[in-house]
Design a protein around this nucleic acid. Structure first.
Lengths: 188, 188
DNA sequence: ATTGGACATGTCAGTGTTGACATGTCCAAT
DNA sequence: ATTGGACATGTCAACACTGACATGTCCAAT
């Protein structure tokens, strides 16, 4: 019985933190590191300067518990039962009106503002870059399914599977766009 | 010789506007509408309240020209030669460090925090939703390639092709994740 | 012993972004 | 004639976010 309905937007970071802590307890520093991995690459980014204040608020609301300081001032944060329920309630809500901000995709869409030669060059680069990213992801996904002690799929595993399909789609799009550019050149 | 190197981040809206105006002259209102379509869905969003001040700045910098008021105070904006060059220079720059914010994907990644029953239900919904989105996109993409008077591919066409592959990838991911969930259940 | 680097947390100013509020115009349907 | 809705532009306060600055700890390698 929490207040997730008070605000619909702008709560993503909050739930990203709850989700990470649902996997395992962590310090703010470790959470910041997590955002530099697949999570930040595909879903949401945040720097430590944004994470610490939000963590403090979660502690205030009883969704997260903060342990005493350890070595180097490290403070481990643990998800409470209330926090887990808050996260689950959010996930069960309908996923309407979620915002997307992706500068890379924006660039792709604007590519036709370039002359065909430049556009072609960049599309080739995009396809090649995607292909590079694919190899390590294939490696991860084709390995054994990692299951956490609590019997849950790991976030990183889900992310790798998503990234794999994502990059394949982007590469295919770039190849398709190159073909369409050819049609334009033949036509005009 | 412009100043795109002054700031690397936070310039996306600026170039989105230049890109839209590269397709055709438009009023602020029309630009706001454009962000509600495929552009906003896959790449970047902006409301009119953000667009008008940015347009004014672009006019100040000579990248965009603003016509006199028409009916209902409508003011048509046109890209200048300097504006097109600014846009092209940005597109030719290496695409490093672009940020991604996608609440929907974040939700997908956090799904394993739910118990398997709920997670399965949502994954089915995701797959079904993707399938729904695919039909109209297939329609658009399988039609004739639309080429603008200036011999360029239309932004909407590129976006539809991207969206098509994007939704296929998401659907495939959801189906894969369901299969992996089954493995977890059989294992645990 | 010392030093460079990863670990760890924090503040702050400036900018980006959103939702709510505000205002007025044009047109089609009643 | 009037009214509801799309067209059209704008402001403002609150909040989100980033980059830069600041501080200190622990440890491994020299």
């Amino acid at each position: 019985m929490s207040n997730w309905s008070d605000k619909v937007g702008g709560m993503a970071l909050r739930y990203a933190l709850l989700g990470l802590l649902a996997e395992q307890p962590a310090s703010g520093y470790e959470l910041a590191k997590a955002f530099e991995g697949d999570l930040g690459r595909y879903a949401w980014q945040a720097g430590h300067n944004r994470i610490y204040p939000e963590l403090a608020r979660l502690v205030d609301e009883g969704l997260v518990e903060r342990a005493e300081e350890g070595a180097r001032g490290r403070r481990v944060h643990t998800l409470t039962a209330a926090g887990l329920e808050e996260l689950r309630a959010w996930l069960r809500q309908p996923w309407e009106g979620s915002t997307v901000r992706n500068e890379g995709v924006l660039r792709l869409f604007l590519l036709s503002a370039l002359d065909p030669g430049d556009a072609r060059k960049i599309l080739h680069e995009v396809a090649a870059r995607c292909e590079e990213e694919l190899a390590p992801l294939r490696e991860i996904v084709s390995g054994e399914t990692p299951i956490s002690p609590e019997g849950r799929l790991e976030l990183g595993w889900l992310a790798a599977g998503y990234g794999l399909r994502q990059y394949e789609a982007s590469r295919d799009w770039a190849v398709w766009a190159l073909g369409e550019l050819d049609k334009v050149d033949r036509g005009g």
